[in-house]
């Protein structure tokens, strides 16, 4: 598993011949370094609010937005923030965007805000965001940080959606609230309970790692 803390600025990007450096910043978050399936970061919201596809998408997008904005601000202030107070500054910046997101979601839909509940405020301590600020945005230009955040954010949203869709289908018999199975389908209640989150995540991790291994051997 690749550890984001070990990501060094510019390592190998200029050396990689096939991709231009900027596309690589974007692509790596989607698949190779997917925050959930490969880095296994931000598990708390991943498991907790992925019980329906809508919740998972909303959570993923909210996190992606916070990640994007905090990456922009952190990388544009990277020469201004002294090393000793960097973590405190990052948390402050992240918390600001989370609070803003909280209000915006409430303004968009009261029901959605109700469903996501406490987990919106918990984006502050999502280690995915802090790790991208610390490992990437604080050492790279704004442009690269934006691409990094977009890649990671979309990767996170995608992973959450994978979990949410499966859990809603099996646990509720619907997708996006629309019934999917015939009437007599017996819901697997366990899938929308926390335990189902772990099961689904495990299955996705197996699939992900199996495909990766297969690719590595061929």
């Amino acid at each position: 598993m690749s550890n984001p803390i070990q990501d060094k600025p510019n390592t190998g990007f200029w050396g990689s011949l096939k991709d231009s450096p900027s596309t690589d910043e974007f692509i790596k978050g989607l698949w190779r370094d997917n925050p959930v399936f490969v880095q296994v970061l931000g598990m708390c919201p991943t498991l907790a609010v992925s019980n329906t596809a809508i919740n998972a998408l909303a959570m993923g997008l909210a996190t992606a937005f916070v990640l994007l904005m905090s990456n922009i601000l952190v990388s544009s202030l990277r020469n201004f923030i002294p090393k000793q107070v960097r973590i405190a500054s990052y948390i402050l910046i992240i918390a600001t965007f989370v609070t803003m997101t909280d209000y915006v979601i409430q303004a968009i839909s009261v029901d959605l805000h109700k469903a996501l509940g406490a987990f919106i405020s918990l984006i502050v301590v999502n280690c995915l965001i802090l790790s991208r600020a610390e490992a990437f945005a604080s050492k790279n230009t704004v442009g690269k940080s934006v691409l990094d955040a977009l890649g990671m954010g979309i990767g996170f949203t995608f992973a959450l959606f994978c979990l949410g869709a499966v859990r809603e289908l099996l646990g509720n018999g619907s997708l996006f609230g629309i019934p999917f199975f015939p009437e007599n389908f017996q819901e697997w209640i366990v899938m929308i309970l926390p335990a189902g989150g772990f099961f689904t995540l495990a299955i996705w991790l197996i699939i992900f790692n199996a495909t990766k291994e297969k690719r590595a051997t061929t």
């Binding site: 202030l77 923030i81 402050l92 965007f97 609070t99 803003m100 209000y103």
Partner: peptide
Amino acid sequence: QAMVGIGIICALMIVLTF
């Protein structure tokens, strides 16, 4: 300076959104 500066920017953004 850095902390106060960031604090002020953040406070402003939150108040505006609120």
